[in-house]
Design a protein around this nucleic acid. Structure first.
Length: 564
RNA sequence: CGGAGUGUAGUUCAAUUGGCUAGAAUACACGCUUUGGGAGCGUGGGGUUGUGGGUUCGAGCCCCGCCACUCCGACCA
């Protein structure tokens, strides 16, 4: 490709609102251009990188035994109604209506479509297991797009769906995908951590995220000191040590408490440790039913865990002050004592590590001292609903938990019978002639996000440093002094030779551009091999690798040998 | 959805208290010059100041509505 003919040139300035390196560099380098929030044009340079990433994923997926196909972008809305996901998805479904009035969802994920496709066939147990996947544009009406390509509203995703007879057969495929993903990311120059995570609206019981460690990442997770336990904040487990559990139970006592509504206010007023305070957080579901989460004062409630133990995934919100007052309590002074029967009380296991809690009384400016579970109130449910924090002790003696941030570049989900239970006729014929439900899994990789993550990891202050496997071109050939016919024809000749060899070359053939500008562009674009032809290079050329400082002069033969 | 903020040339930004034909840099086009780290000179094109209304002799600037975008949070991969 001749630079002079390429659509989409480099640019000195990045948009003023771009904050991330990947966003700035991809914009300046001429890889992407903004359309509206969270939607991007992918320019010729960007497409080449994207295509190479896709090819790596495709090769490894095919090697794993998965089979590529494609589903329509418009999903009949009835399918989403069948699984009751028109309301429960985390992202807003975009729905359009055709001229006959038929409604379609713009696909954000394709479980329903794949199950619907599979049930159109007469599948026997002999056909199982299989794994089908696609690359397609996904639509997610994110509340807030951000960070260049990292969180967008339209993006290409590789999504795979496995169908198995049972959990055992599925687990083999889950492991297969796990290993396939690690191979894919290794080829892309990424080393993600595999993090236990929450299934969210996708459904199913367990899943893993592939997180590339990064300060700009949105996902928070924990890794144990020995590296054996890696879990997302939503699901991370930890040991809650006993506090004053040997102290005798004292008599409950209501006292005046002129204080503010925060935990600190309580600590200050009573002069007692924060862990002895009872923290009470009120939640409501979509029907207005109230749930009181009770936890030790030094811990926080993990809403995801709470939703799971209540079987209300994605359905809980903080209760409003009005709702709290309606049941006879008071914001900032909530207590489980006296609320039994009025709300559903869930206590964290940490409530059993402390005696003689202090906390609110459901009355403004009145607190209760020496609250004890069982004696003074009863929980409707006891569970682990606590949020992990940096430095907490991990379970199973893996050491302390270390907090990390990461970019989630992919995930693998166990779906089990979730979709095949909700969708009619999604069955295969087993050996005994019975119709049985499929055991499913799904596996996603965000292509654009992966691309941006690679840039986040591979760049310097001058530009991108693409790993060779996915660089838009292998060689950036720079011609200087091109007004000199001899030099010009030599550069042209090298361009032809490399192309004939099958080497992908971007040839900076501009005659009206300063040398410095060409070098700056080449650093910005980040192609691995920079080859300069000029009056200085004589019979040979100058070769410099983008990831190295030194350049060297070599002969044409050596160049050909290097790039073979 | 809550809080904060911003919309002026393709881009980055100016424009005094509300006052003359809305400027500069960069990018783009042409000419000259120049070719090892974003060079120089000259000329030129490029704006319904997001949008609709209002106040005013006069609005880029003040007021109101709407739209878009950004940041923080909530939400979510």
């Amino acid at each position: 490709m001749r630079y002079s003919a390429m659509f989409g040139k480099t640019q000195k300035d990045a948009p003023s609102d771009a904050t991330l390196s990947s966003h700035k560099l991809l914009h300046k380098g001429g890889f992407i251009r903004e359309s509206t929030a969270g939607r991007y044009y992918m320019l010729p340079l960007g497409i080449r990188v994207q295509q190479k990433i896709i090819n790596v994923i495709r090769e490894e997926m095919d090697k794993s035994g998965a089979q590529e196909l494609i589903t329509p972008v418009l999903h009949p809305l009835e399918l989403w109604q069948e699984t009751n996901r028109t309301n429960t998805t985390g992202f807003e479904l975009s729905v359009i209506t055709d001229r006959r009035g038929a409604k379609f969802a713009l696909g954000g994920t394709a479980e329903e479509m794949m199950v619907d496709l599979v049930r159109k066939f007469q599948i026997s147990y002999k056909d199982l297991p299989f794994n089908i996947y696609q690359f397609s544009t996904k639509f997610r009406d994110e509340l807030r797009a951000r960070g260049g390509l990292l969180r967008v509203r339209e993006f290409i995703m590789k999504d795979a769906y496995s169908f198995s007879t049972d959990e055992d057969q599925f687990k083999a495929e889950y492991k297969n995908m796990w290993e396939t993903y690690l191979r894919i990311y290794r080829r892309l120059g990424l080393e993600p951590l595999v993090v236990e995570a929450d299934n969210g609206y996708i459904g199913g019981e367990y899943c893993h995220e592939f997180q590339v460690e990064s300060e700009i990442g949105e996902g928070k997770f924990f890794i144990s000191e020995d590296g054996q336990y890696v879990a997302h904040e939503d699901v991370a487990k930890f040991i809650v040590e006993d506090k004053n559990i040997n102290e005798d139970l004292k008599e409950m006592q209501e006292v005046e408490a002129i204080r503010g509504n925060t935990m600190e206010d309580g600590v200050k007023l009573h002069g007692l440790p924060d862990w002895q305070q009872m923290k009470d957080v009120m939640f409501t579901d979509s029907e207005g039913k109230l749930y009181l989460a009770v936890i030790r004062g030094d811990l926080d409630v993990n809403k995801t865990k709470l939703e799971h133990v209540l079987n209300k995934v994605g359905q809980l919100d903080s209760a409003t002050e009005e709702q709290i007052r309606e049941i006879g309590s008071e914001p900032g002074f909530i207590s489980p004592v006296g609320l039994e029967g009025k709300v559903f009380i869930v206590t964290d296991k940490s409530v059993r590590t402390v005696h003689n809690f202090y906390g609110g009384s459901n009355k403004k400016h009145r607190d209760i001292l020496n609250i004890n579970i069982d004696r003074d109130f009863k929980a409707d449910l006891e569970a682990d609903i606590a949020l992990a924090q940096n430095g907490f002790e991990s379970i199973d003696s893996h050491g302390k938990l270390i907090e990390k941030r990461g970019i989630e570049v992919g995930n693998i989900f166990q779906l089990g019978y979730h979709y095949t239970t909700l969708m009619n006729n999604s069955t295969y014929t087993d050996v005994d002639g019975e119709q049985k439900k499929y055991y499913m899994g799904c596996y996603g990789i965000g292509v654009g996000r992966t691309l941006a993550t690679i840039v986040e990891k591979y760049h310097d202050d001058k530009g991108i440093i693409w790993p060779e496997e996915i660089a838009p071109y292998t060689v950036h050939l720079i011609g200087l002094n091109l007004e000199d016919e001899a030099i010009k024809s030599k550069a042209e000749a090298i361009y032809q030779v490399l192309q004939k060899m099958g080497v992908e070359v971007l040839f900076d053939d501009r005659t009206d551009t300063m040398a410095g500008e060409k070098f700056a562009d080449s650093d910005l674009i980040g192609i691995p091999y920079r080859v300069v032809v000029s009056k200085r290079t004589g019979e040979g050329v100058e070769l410099k690798l983008r990831n190295q400082k030194e350049s060297k002069n070599i002969s044409l033969e050596e160049l050909v040998e290097t790039l073979k």
